[in-house]
Amino acid sequence: MWKQALAICKKDFRSEIRTRYSINGLIMFIIVTISIIKFSLGEEKLSNELHAGLLWIIIFFSNSSGLSRVFVAEEDRGTSFVLKLTASPKSVFLGKLIFNTTLSFVINLFVVLLFLVTMDVKIASFGPFMLIIVLGNFGLSSVMTIIAALISKSNSKGSLYPVLSFPLLLPLLLSTINGTWLSFEGSGITELLSEVQIIVSYTIVIITASFLLFDIIWNE
């Protein structure tokens, strides 16, 4: 299963490198969003809490546009049969999950770097901050991958995505925003423990449910 998944993931990366389907648009999106925020703020100082919220809003929308394509691209081009005829559903889902998680990682790294450079924000505890970003990354990509699979089967592909992903992601986002805020304020790992627990268990539940659900939707 892992070997098949990695082969599928590798295929997606090579395809992305050739076509630049997602990445060019994404980079523009992130730069434009952060610039607009920066210019509209002017000299105004934001609280740490607002900074944390803002950061996760940017992460949410950049990921929405980047990660939603994995299954739609195969479905639209009629290549999903290739995957159905060469791999088990579990391998396909795992492959797409690994691809999306990696892509999400790259997106988030870029967003965080740009955010820290442009915004006037001090991270008092850097380790916990990175921990929340990385764990949030896993949660985000797992939700977005299963929703990407669901919408690829519906007729109104693009518009459904934020509608479905937002309510599902709300508990995760509340925890990551709170955790990020606490890390800006200088809290240590122990104070973040409850947020970390929520994010980790949330991700485990989503991934488990996704594997069960994917078997059903994939051949529909």
Binding site: S15, R77, G78, T79, F81, V82
Partner: peptide
């Protein structure tokens, strides 16, 4: 109804 990958 089956297509292979155009970009390869």
């Amino acid at each position: 109804y089956l297509n292979l990958y155009d970009e390869f």
